[in-house]
């Protein structure tokens, strides 16, 4: 009788799983999911408040879309340079890795600079966390908190990239490490696409 109830499980060989990606990459993915959910929470709150508000400001009176498009383009380009760096790291081409990591950092820093410029021009126009000249006071709060939270992610991404670059230059980093930094950087860019769509396009 009991022999009939044998297991049909595939035999587990131990070691890497699932999909053979290893724990560090798995952990980075899970972290990205978790962090993504924080953004999802923020954006859901923003969406709810905006729909519920009768006098949400008209975005076209506030933003200069050309400038934002340039910002977005810069950040997405930095994702492309990052991908090149990861590819070069797999081939063991340290020189290209260094060069493209540097380009990525320049792209990210340029994005942050442009964001700082946009913030300061909005602040000069009278927008604060508490109020703004265009309509519902919560607009300013949502805008500054969510883009600020994203900006802090870009900043921490830049720090990670700088450390990765220094380690790579010293010959201490493995391709897997650069790939992890790349994953995080792509995530930060992807989040911006959502922020961009929800604040500037809709």
């Amino acid at each position: 009788m009991e022999a009939a109830i044998e297991t049909r499980e595939a035999y587990w060989e131990g070691g890497r799983g699932p999909f053979g990606i290893g724990w560090s990459k798995l952990m980075m993915w899970l972290f990205i999911v978790t962090d993504g959910l924080v953004f999802a929470g923020f954006l859901a709150i923003y969406g709810f408040l905006r729909i519920a508000s009768p006098n949400w400001p008209d975005r076209s009176h506030i933003f200069h879309l050309d400038f934002i498009a340039l910002m977005t383009f810069t950040l997405i380009t930095s994702s492309a340079t990052m991908a090149t760096a990861v590819g070069a790291a797999r081939k063991g081409d340290r020189k290209t890795v260094g060069r493209f990591l540097a380009l990525t950092i320049v792209g990210g820093a340029a994005f942050l600079g442009m964001q700082a410029y946009e913030w300061s021009s909005l602040i000069r126009a009278g927008a604060t966390l508490e109020a703004n000249p265009w309509g519902a006071p919560l607009f300013g709060a949502c805008f500054f908190i969510i883009t600020g939270f994203h900006g802090s992610h870009v900043l921490s991404g830049l720090i990670v990239l700088a450390i990765t670059m220094a380690r790579s230059a010293a010959g201490k980093s493995r391709p897997a490490g650069i790939e992890l930094a790349g994953l995080y950087w792509h995530f930060v860019d992807l989040v911006w696409v959502f922020v961009f769509t929800l604040f500037y396009l809709i």
Binding site: T7, E9, A10, Y11, W12, E13, G14, G15, R16, G17, P18, G22, W23, L26, M27, L30
Partner: peptide, 14 residues
């Protein structure tokens, strides 16, 4: 989560 998915010894299927 990572430890349970990734670090099980040989034969320790889920």
């Amino acid at each position: 989560v990572c430890t349970i998915l990734d670090q099980r010894t040989k034969g320790m299927s889920l």
